[in-house]
């Protein structure tokens, strides 16, 4: 399985953790982003994700390379799901393993913060009475 992946299938955090395990690394930090059941008090029925897949993979690979550069010896996997998701389901899983815990926290935060800025993936929130592309309008 690839370390960097965009998929329509359910994300399995244990499989993604297994990808970054290494005997010389003492800490793994996992970030799992899940679908919230409400936005500003409105009930979310489902989310629809779409990606500009080749560019999104390329930007996710850039993030992984930056993490490996900034935190030498680190091991990272980033999986993002697209398609239709229901509340409670995992959208993104990032696992970072480093020699010590502090670097794992920092590197994982860097990866998710950067992903939200640079990776061309879009999310539409669907409510009972309408839908909205998140962040599209000021």
């Amino acid at each position: 399985m690839s370390l960097i992946k965009i998929t329509d299938a359910t994300l399995n955090a244990n499989e993604i953790i297994a990808q970054v395990l290494r005997d010389d690394l003492g800490g793994i930090d996992i970030f799992i982003g899940t679908v919230r059941n409400q936005t500003k008090g409105k009930k979310v029925v489902r989310l629809e994700y779409e990606a500009y897949r080749p560019m999104a993979l390329s930007e996710m690979n850039k993030i992984a390379n930056q993490v490996r550069e900034k935190w030498p010896q680190s091991s990272i996997a980033i999986h993002h799901r697209i398609g239709i998701l229901n509340t409670g389901e995992a959208v993104v899983v990032i696992a970072v393993a480093t020699p010590h815990r502090q670097q794992a926290f920092e590197a994982c935060k860097y990866a998710i913060d950067t992903l939200k800025e640079t990776v061309p993936i879009w999310k539409k929130e669907v409510f009972d009475d309408g839908e909205v592309w998140v962040a599209a309008h000021p």
């Binding site: 919230r36 993104v92 939200k116 061309p120 879009w122 592309w133």
Partner: peptide, 12 residues
């Protein structure tokens, strides 16, 4: 060429 409107990957 691709148009990239504001991205919103991840959740939360």
């Amino acid at each position: 060429i691709a148009l990239i409107p504001p991205v919103s990957g991840g959740a939360f």
